[in-house]
Write a protein that binds this DNA or RNA. Sequence first.
DNA 1: ACTGATGTTAGTACCAACTACTAAATGAGG
DNA 2: CCTCATTTAGTAGTTGGTACTAACATCAGT
Lengths: 190, 190
Amino acid sequence: MAKYKKRERQELLIERVSTDPFLTDERLSEMFEVSIQTIRLDRLELNIPELRERIKHVAREETDKIRSLSLQEVVGEIIDIELNHHALSLFIVEEGHVFRKNQIARGHYLFAQANSLCVAVIDEPLALTKSAQIEFIKPAKLGDKVISKAVVVSMEGRIAAITVESKIEQRLVFKGRFEMYYTGEGEKNG
Amino acid sequence: MAKYKKRERQELLIERVSTDPFLTDERLSEMFEVSIQTIRLDRLELNIPELRERIKHVAREETDKIRSLSLQEVVGEIIDIELNHHALSLFIVEEGHVFRKNQIARGHYLFAQANSLCVAVIDEPLALTKSAQIEFIKPAKLGDKVISKAVVVSMEGRIAAITVESKIEQRLVFKGRFEMYYTGEGEKNG
DNA sequence: ACTGATGTTAGTACCAACTACTAAATGAGG
DNA sequence: CCTCATTTAGTAGTTGGTACTAACATCAGT
């Protein structure tokens, strides 16, 4: 019994095909040392589509992803906002955001969430970060839902001061104080 | 002459196929009201591969993008490093990094470059950002090459202090002071 | 009006990578 | 030994092509 049992083989098959969708039945049959027909029966039972359909699917999916990635301009989803006063956003920690080793989110994603929120809360044509003091209190992990709240403390002479607090299940994980530079209609008066 | 001339048709063909790689010769022949053979001759002359190859190409390209995006773990390319002392990285501002309105790079990308560099320069199994004070001195624009330099000032009691300066053509655009928390082999002794 | 070049269409044989189906061989367990 | 599950073999048909040959069609120039 050099080969696998049906059950075993099918589990491995799922894994192989999902990590490399470009495998033909022929290649797979060589890998598992079974006939092509067996592979086809397996795919049938497991509802795995044929090579071409898999590739097509990948191609379709990925053209979609390009869109959602250029929308990654803003990190986190804004769930409440009152311009020039405060704003709330939600950021869910996904695989791409964490260190593989320990599943902890890279700091710059938490920063990015806070920074995006600061840009969004300022109701002016131009808003750029001027400076920030930030603190990472607890690490955020894969799957965590981070709620970030920005509060505008003051807006004077083209500089807004904003405080941000990010929490996971009510626990503070990040806080920061941002100074934003802005210009806009009011510029004529100043 | 309801149809197009050869020249015209071929130009349109390129456009159609590049905007939608999923078109079969049959669909294309209907669109241009010519025979399938004509479409095939056109593809041959224009070096346009067949449907399946086009799809495969898209799929491959995009799976690469995913990889390079999850490799976006580190923002910027490290060009010189001496562990626990200093490190240099290059970050080129691309379309995805800027505000569409004014082509200015979002602050969190400059932060991410600096932050990644701080993580990289610490030669310990775990290194997390604890706090940072940062300043954005001048905006970085589309196409700019940002060189970031991190210098480790001290490493004591699991906390490293690092200063970072980022420049575009010798001009300072960003600076920051990072505190990194780290643990490693030395943990047993502490 | 005839000739030639260019462009278009038709048709055949072949390919990869399948699906869908039937049928036979093999194995492992009771 | 028998039996049921599993595996293999083999055939016909599909899609979306390549590669090639041959037959038109069209128009331009002489």
